[in-house]
């Protein structure tokens, strides 16, 4: 598995797309800092970007990589190798190279701007951690989609649909249901609703840092316990880890059964 991981990783590192992705984040970081002249405001703007863009790129890139390297995968499958190690290796290769582009692309301009001396460093590292988690989650979801669909067009369609669903439509439905059931106690429902969507989950995680004063404005013991203590942070991280593990398990399961 490690060999395949290494191969995928270096293959991707040499590819044009990771450079584009890396350059994009580098540019974003530099421009944001140049325009804002303020680290903490730049972190807020970055949060908006990361929460929307990282899942999109993770999904598209994951699907693309799977379809592009299909022939090579078939070649590997003819070798005496474990199927799970082939697919896991590829998955980790993609996810890690994407995360590396993200971390380096954003990290370099911020470090040069004086991140280590500023107090935004915790917010920023939280941002990078959630960004990495999102990359791992959405690449895994993308591999799932690609494994289930041999048709490229269909696969891409589903991938974009998945992103649209989790990034925007989910929140719309969530909001409507909260307003619709406003006569009932909703704090448990709203927290569970957040847990079920990795994008919402990472958003809440960052909100805990940035908008804590607004979040504490709501009356509710569960909210208070969740947002007021480190309980929220711990639960959010556990959920994010579960969100990585579940799709990866499905990759292993699916790849074992699949006919090539």
């Amino acid at each position: 598995m490690l060999k395949i991981l290494k191969y995928s990783f270096f293959d991707l590192i040499r590819s044009r797309w990771s450079y584009v992705y890396f350059a994009f984040y580098l540019l974003l970081g530099v421009v944001l800092l140049f325009l804002n002249n303020d680290l903490s405001k730049a972190v807020i703007t970055l949060m908006n970007v990361i929460i929307v863009l990282v899942p999109l790129i993770g999904t598209i890139f994951g699907v693309m990589y799977y379809y592009n390297s299909k022939e090579f995968t078939e070649l590997l499958l003819a070798q005496p190798l474990k199927r799970s190690s082939i697919f896991l290796g590829q998955y980790l290769g993609v996810a890690m190279s994407l995360s590396m582009s993200l971390i380096l692309g954003l990290g370099i301009p911020f470090v040069f701007y004086g991140l280590f001396k500023s107090n935004a460093i915790w917010d920023f590292s939280l941002l990078l951690i959630t960004g990495t988690f999102l990359t791992f989650i959405f690449t895994a979801l993308a591999f799932n989609i690609a494994l289930s669909n041999d048709n490229k067009i269909k696969g891409f369609g589903y991938a974009i649909l998945l992103w649209l669903l989790l990034a925007i439509i989910y929140d719309g439905v969530f909001l409507m249901s909260l307003i619709f059931f406003e006569d009932y106690p909703l704090d448990k429902l709203s927290l569970i609703g957040t847990m079920l969507n990795p994008i919402d989950l990472s958003r809440t995680l960052i909100l805990l840092k940035l908008d804590i004063s607004a979040l504490l404005g709501y009356t509710g013991a569960i909210f208070k316990q969740f947002f007021g203590t480190s309980f929220g942070l711990i639960i959010s991280f556990i959920m994010l880890i579960i969100w990585v593990i579940l799709p990866v398990m499905r990759i292993m399961f699916k790849s074992r059964k699949k006919d090539f």
């Binding site: 925007i168 929140d171 719309g172 909260l178 909703l186 908008d211 979040l215 404005g217 009356t219």
Partner: peptide, 20 residues
């Protein structure tokens, strides 16, 4: 306004749907 009416919706703060 929405938060004023249904305070629980505060959990959707900074969501892309809300921006839209």
């Amino acid at each position: 306004y929405i938060v004023n009416r249904t305070p629980e919706t505060i959990i959707l703060l900074r969501s892309m749907f809300i921006d839209i």
